[in-house]
Computed example of a mutant assay.
Amino acid sequence: MTRSNDYLFDWIRPLAKTLKILRLVFTGLGVVLIAVGQVWMDYDKSWQADWSNLIFWMGVLAVCFTGVLLVFFERDSVSVLLDLKGSEELVVQQQDYISYLSKRESILLTWQTVTKLLSELLDQALTEPEISREKQEMMMLSTVEILADYKLTLLQIADEYCNISIYEYRDDENLLVCVACYRSRPSDAREKHRKWKVGEGHVGKAFELQRELICGDASAPDVKPWISASPENFDENDDVRYVSLAALPIAVSAEEPIGVLIVTSSEAMRFANSGEDHGDEDEQEARRLAAAALQDFAAQIAQIMSVCTSRAVEPSEESADER
């Protein structure tokens, strides 16, 4: 399809040729007239002497006209090079912006996809009149697997060590207990998980404060003591595995959290809050979008957990049904 500015260029191309011809004609004519005027000034014939000045100045005007054409329609090589450099910089900026828009679109589409999958999981829970403990565990495991499937696109977490866990608050124990877990090393997910007191570690802190904790580098001196595990829960691998983290309360009502969603990476700066300024603006925006998406997912997980709890079947009832 022909663009509108193609018509302009079709008009400019013949004009450029015309200007070149005019420069050649007026330059040649000006030189000839100046030479003729100077020669005629020395002639004895009166009519030649009378016309010599006019011819001379006509030649000067022709040369000046050529100079005007050069000033307004001909560019020097330095100006051309400077403009080319400016154009290259503009192209690079546009390419960066296109790359940012593409990355942003990818994150938003992934956000939408995960939201849809979690909604389907919620619909599945709503269709169940009774939900056994085993069924609850399967739903929570499906939830972390959904997040794990899209961790690269959404969170930029690739081959590094990643942990995605859902913790549920148990009133009878007054502890936060892991009910579903994904880890980059599958054998780690099958190990016995730690239980956290309210206010202990990043899990307990997020639950206690009833707000998300987003940390780009948990090893920072001003952060590490605040979210470190107690001596009985301490693991020597924590400093290596959990470098950047997001801990988000799971709550239907903001004042009454029922658990915590945890996503961690062994690489720094996978997550960012509004005050984080590491990296360029595009990277910061991508991390902020990821954090916002996780908040949305935590709200959906809260709905799933709430439905599962309200329709839970006690173990004794399950045993009776089996008999």
Rank of each mutant, 00 (worst) to 15 (best):
T2S: 13
T2R: 15
N5Q: 07
D6E: 13
D6K: 06
F9T: 01
R13S: 05
P14R: 11
L15E: 03
L15K: 10
K17F: 14
L24M: 00
F26H: 10
G28K: 05
I34H: 07
G37D: 08
W40N: 12
M41G: 04
M41D: 10
K45Q: 07
W51T: 04
W51Q: 09
S52C: 02
N53K: 13
L54E: 06
F56L: 12
W57C: 00
V63E: 01
G67I: 08
G67D: 01
R75I: 01
S77H: 11
S79Y: 06
G86Y: 04
E88P: 02
L90Y: 13
Q94P: 00
Y100P: 02
R104D: 02
S106I: 05
L108F: 02
L108M: 14
Q112G: 06
V114P: 00
V114C: 05
K116G: 00
K116E: 07
L126M: 13
L126K: 15
I131T: 00
M138S: 15
L141R: 15
V144C: 05
A148G: 01
D149N: 06
K151M: 01
L155D: 11
Q156T: 10
A158K: 14
D159N: 13
D159P: 00
C162D: 07
C162S: 15
C162R: 04
N163K: 05
I164C: 02
N174F: 05
L176C: 10
C178M: 14
A180K: 13
A180V: 08
C181Q: 09
R183A: 06
R185F: 09
S187Y: 09
S187W: 08
R190V: 03
K192M: 05
K197E: 14
V203M: 05
V203R: 08
A206R: 12
R211L: 03
I214L: 15
C215V: 15
C215R: 01
A218R: 10
A218F: 04
S219V: 03
S219W: 02
A220Q: 13
P225L: 06
P231V: 01
E236P: 00
D239S: 10
D239M: 07
L248E: 12
P249G: 02
A251H: 08
V252A: 03
P257D: 06
G259I: 08
V263G: 04
E267C: 01
F271Y: 14
N273L: 00
E276W: 07
D277S: 12
H278P: 00
G279H: 08
Q284I: 15
E285Y: 10
A290M: 09
A291Y: 06
A292Y: 13
F297M: 11
Q300S: 08
I301K: 05
A302T: 02
S306E: 12
V307W: 09
V307N: 03
A312S: 15
A320S: 13
R323M: 09
